[in-house]
Design a protein around this nucleic acid. Sequence first.
DNA 1: AAGATTGTTGCTTA
DNA 2: TTAAGCAACAATCT
Length: 287
Amino acid sequence: METIRRDLAAKIVGQKIISVKVLDKKLGSAKLTRILFGNKIILADRIGKLLIFELADNNFLLIHLKMTGQLVYTDGDEVIAGGHPFKKGSVLDKVGGKLPSKHTRLHLKFAPSKKDDEGNLFFNDIRRFGYVKIASIKELELIKNDYGIEPLKKDFTLENLKKNLLNRGVSIKAALLDQKKVSGIGNIYADEILFAAGIKPSRPAKSLKAKELEKIYLEAERIIAKAIKHRGTTFSDYVDGQGNEGGFVRFLKVYGRGGEACFECGRTIKKSRVAGRGTHFCPFCQK
DNA sequence: AAGATTGTTGCTTA
DNA sequence: TTAAGCAACAATCT
């Protein structure tokens, strides 16, 4: 999400919206159109996995991609008119490289600038779990209250992590995935962080020794920073703001590797279910 | 054809 | 009150 935010910030901040097409009734067309049309995006922000675009009229455009959402920005009319040949094998290539596709839920057009052609932002979402909505500053503050400390942000300190996790009876994996306590960590990174820290995902959070929690703290920051550096992790549907896939996949050590050999000890990576999610770990390296 | 899937919420059960 | 498990949201892929 941070990769997407950065890419889009460079493209749409300062841009005026000249067309709003809501292609999925579920999103509620009237309010989106009323607020967005003629408005301008003045800031691209993010909290956890929620994208927050500040608008010139003090409203905010919130976008959550959930499992299968995509945001794709294009310049140039060839995309709209004829179908731009996207990178071979990419997710966009799979839908024929044409946008809007049958999974496009929202299509925004931006006023052409001197430098660029008319811009297009497409919100595509196969499973329709994601959402796009308008929030006032007050509504946004309420939403922000539901997000816990986040790796690489200022309040992500060892003390705060202890306070949020160490008294809890839930598994450490469930605790890391709980966005109210720690935000921004999803299923893939939770597994990777716990492998790097040498902790079994099913361990109750409150069973962790101070040293173990410190390891999780350090690995969470290291892995999230590294993932951002490599533009995130693509599994099957995530793409960045230009429709490219993330580069962190090749660094995954356990996620998606059930049945394969552990890179550290050579034993078999196990896949089980913890906190209701597919969970990958090395029974030997993780205690 | 059953079971899996990157996120989150809310219900039921214990 | 807490936590685990599950369904729901919905579409696709293996």
